[in-house]
Nucleic acid binder design. Structure first.
Lengths: 138, 138
DNA sequence: TGCGTTACGTGATAAAATCACACGCGTAAA
DNA sequence: TTTACGCGTGTGATTTTATCACGTAACGCA
């Protein structure tokens, strides 16, 4: 899958590289995996990758999945900004997807209010077995 | 705050030490912080702490907050098992609390079902400003 | 041209977690 | 009692993840 150049914000050279590497991968990628992937393109140091990931994250194009120390491309609609992200992570195949759910988001806001908490960001990481692996389960 | 010996499962010596250190701290503790704390008691190596944390986590007494690489004592009611944990984390003071919310849990289950996902565990990490810091905000 | 900002390159280092292997100690089978 | 085994532990090395610090290059703009 390639990205629409129309909607692409101004990215630096390294951000482009990292985003491409990430987009052309099925699964979440770790920083050092990306580094390996990009070595043929001249990327040598971890810093380069981490800087690009930071930039992409700030631009909302990439999310980090903390449970895996790995990164994925954000597939969400950028029209309305999501203060919440929901990730569904398969323990078996390692696949991870981002899903949107207004119901969860609404309840999260409720929880914040109930606790007088000024919510800046919320991330929900769900782990288990995806539909495919569930079927193949022993 | 001390723990009720009645309800305490069988813990190893190191698990007790780590749990005590964790329980007597306001904020989430990192593994190496715990190591420092426990050095006077003879704990010398990271492994010791990580092993204890693993054991405590398996027993459901401790949770890891991935966003912080830090650990807190589980305050939840152990009567009904929570497949979900919700953490409210203040960016300013670093305080973190676990909260329960059936509404969120229910919606999480819905999301899992909608995706034919066999949910094993879900963790929601909310970050922002706690009530206290919110008031003192510049 | 000169200046400031932003991206980039690079080596060192820190922080977080795990591996691998050995030892002591209780306890249950022989 | 002795042997064998599991489990918790101790310990040093190593791996994995992330950041610091500092210098240089590229670009926009007065």
């Amino acid at each position: 899958m390639t990205r629409d150049p129309e909607t692409t914000l101004a990215l630096t050279r390294n951000e482009e590289r990292v985003l491409d590497a990430l987009a052309s991968s099925e699964k979440p990628q770790k920083a050092y995996d990306l580094l390996e992937t990009l070595k043929p393109q001249g990327v040598k140091a971890p810093m380069t990758v981490y800087r690009a990931l930071d930039g992409l994250t700030e631009k909302g194009l990439v999310h980090k999945i903390d449970a895996l120390n790995a990164y994925i491309v954000c597939e969400s609609d950028h029209a309305h900004d999501h203060a919440s992200q929901i990730f569904v992570i398969c323990r078996n195949c390692g696949d991870a997807r981002e899903v949107d759910d207004c119901g969860v988001e609404a309840r999260v806001k409720d929880v914040a209010e109930a606790n007088a908490f000024a919510l800046a960001d919320a991330r929900l990481e769900m782990s288990g077995l995806c539909a495919a692996c569930r079927g193949a389960a022993s």
